[in-house]
Amino acid sequence: MRPFAFQRPDSLAHAHELTVPEDATAVAGGTNLLDLMKLQVETPERLVDINRLGMTEIQETADGGLRIGALATNTATANDDRVRADYPVLARAILAGATQQLRNRATTGGNLCQRTRCYYFTNIDQPCNKREPGSGCGAIDGIAHLHAVLGTSPSCIATYPGDMAVALSALDATVEIASPDSDERSVPVRDFHLLPGDTPCRDNVLERGEIITAVTLPRPVKAKHLYRKVRERSSYAFALVSVAAIVAVEDGVIARADLAFGGLAHKPWHDARLSELLVGEAPSAALFDKAGDLLLEGARGYGENDFKIPLARRTLAAVMAEATETEI
């Protein structure tokens, strides 16, 4: 690990000040960042420990939603009774990720900001446009087993690796961000992560010095919540494909179908057209197949990850079948 100065701000304003410079990085749980510092993928000259800034509360909001502090641990969130009862897709997604030891350290904000697990990104001897802009992408025409099939660019085919954010996307949660120059801004989680485009070095919309303060969930809805994660071993593995689904059926027709997908893209994938297609229709295998067509119409495999396209189609159908109690 390269030498760095360790700094601890005593207020949010102080945290902004310390993290504005390019050579500073904020650390919360640290489970991803410190790993990347050991690999010299991340080489901050100043590490700003924001863990003593509070922001751990999980509180009800005025409009009946839930506000989860940026420094609430993944364990605290997944085991909050309101989350378990009213937002089970979120509890399930968190519990499907990592291990108990990691979830005990991982935080809401840090989890959102975790970096890709692309093997070329984490190996400093390999080309990677995300780590070193302009160096090329090793994964295109390389080992691309875990990589994206939607929203890729000629610069980068990395995936966003997390589970929690996939559930937050299905829930249409909002990320609250404190900015150095203004008070606070809110960004829908669906817009928080970016597609790679020409600037894969940018994972999300955070600007220098900005700090995530909370994630807010809208008022709970009466629906079935499912999180299905397909992976190569049954625990402690990243998703090949995951589906977060909030689905309701009323009088034989689908009344709600909020879906988000992990493992497919540089961000949790949400396609508003799926809900438009599904809502108002009677659930059937043919309908789920049409939803698969729509989801994957722009999909492109890179050899080793070609399997993700049929896998995503089948996982979507399986989740919709379970949620709507339909035989497929």
Binding site: F6, G30, L34, D49, N51, T75, Q101, L102, N104, R105
Partner: peptide
């Protein structure tokens, strides 16, 4: 709480 002691700094 159980944690991985390798992924955290003593200073934290």
């Amino acid at each position: 709480m159980r944690i991985n002691s390798c992924l955290t700094l003593a200073a934290m």
